[in-house]
């Protein structure tokens, strides 16, 4: 049931692999996922590509125990909303022991498998997050 289109995720690859988003040079708002239009500045905005460091902090998190189709083998897994240092917010899986999870903790990005279409299908990769050892 999950959309497993190869071209759909191929188009998003750059952003998913390398945390490429955008930023508006007019108001310095950062967007991840990338937005082609700054909703504040509209046509006065100058939106350019921006690569995020992937460092940020956990605003909130949950542990998914009833997983959607295609994620059953990964469950239970943690997902958080991460506030990136540049200001954009992003939802991402947080790997590592659940005991370490807490709001406000610093995270860094880690490259992982996100989803497999099937045993003989394509493997989708991208960024997850891991709690930074120092926090």
């Amino acid at each position: 049931m999950h959309t497993s289109s190869v071209p759909l995720y191929w188009r998003l690859q750059k952003s998913k692999y390398g945390l490429f988003g955008t930023k508006c040079l007019s108001c310095n708002t950062h967007f991840y996922p990338p937005k082609p239009l700054c909703s504040e500045c509209r046509r006065k905005g100058r939106v350019v590509e921006h690569q995020f460091s992937g460092k940020g902090k956990i605003l909130t998190f949950t542990i998914i125990r009833t997983a959607p189709e295609g994620f059953e083998k990964q469950a239970p897994y943690a997902i958080g909303i991460i506030e990136l240092d540049e200001g954009a917010k992003i939802a991402g899986q947080i790997v590592g022991p659940f005991e370490r999870l807490a709001t406000g903790k610093r995270v860094r990005p880690v490259f992982r498998k996100i989803y497999e279409d099937s045993d003989d299908g394509i493997i989708h990769y991208g960024m997850k997050f891991v709690i930074d050892g120092k926090s």
Binding site: Q74, K113, I114
Partner: peptide, 12 residues
Amino acid sequence: DIDEDTITISIE
């Protein structure tokens, strides 16, 4: 981990 393989290890 369940989401690690040769590719993810290589990248890290």
